[in-house]
Computed example of a mutant assay.
Amino acid sequence: MPDYSVVIPLYNKGPHIERALRSVQAQTVQPREIIVVDDGSTDGGYEWLEGLDLPNLILERRGLPGPGGYAARNRGIELASSEWIAFLDADDEWQPGHLESVTRALEAIERPDGVVSLFSGYEDVYADGRRSVDPFTRKNGGPICEMDFSTLLGHWVRLNASPMWTSATVCRRTTLVESGRFPEGRCRRGGDKDTWLRVAHMGTTVYTGAITARYFRDSINMTTKMAYANVVPCIVQSTKDLSARETGDVAKRIRALQNLEIRNYALVSARTGGLERSTWADFDTELDPSGGRLLSFLSTPLGALAARLGFTLKRIVKRYV
Rank of each mutant, 00 (worst) to 15 (best):
F119T: 06
E110T: 13
Q95M: 14
G14M: 05
R181F: 09
W196H: 11
A227M: 13
V133W: 05
C187P: 11
Y70Q: 05
T272Q: 14
A270S: 13
A304P: 01
T137N: 12
R173M: 07
S81P: 15
T204I: 09
N230S: 08
E83G: 04
C234R: 09
D39H: 10
G274Y: 12
G191W: 02
P9D: 07
L79E: 10
F297C: 13
D3G: 14
E93L: 09
S299L: 09
T166C: 00
A168P: 08
F136H: 02
E286K: 13
L79Q: 05
W165Q: 14
E110S: 14
R73W: 14
I58K: 02
E60S: 01
E110Y: 10
W84M: 11
G69H: 07
R131L: 06
H155C: 12
F119M: 04
Y11D: 00
T204H: 00
M164Q: 04
V102Q: 06
A307R: 05
R308G: 11
A307M: 06
V199R: 10
A71T: 15
E123R: 13
L152R: 01
L298E: 05
C187Y: 07
L260N: 08
G248N: 03
E33N: 03
T166S: 00
V29A: 06
V116I: 03
R61T: 06
F283C: 04
A266I: 09
L176I: 11
V116E: 04
M222H: 15
Y4G: 08
L152G: 01
L106P: 12
S82P: 06
C187E: 11
D124N: 15
R19F: 02
G142W: 11
S269A: 12
S167T: 05
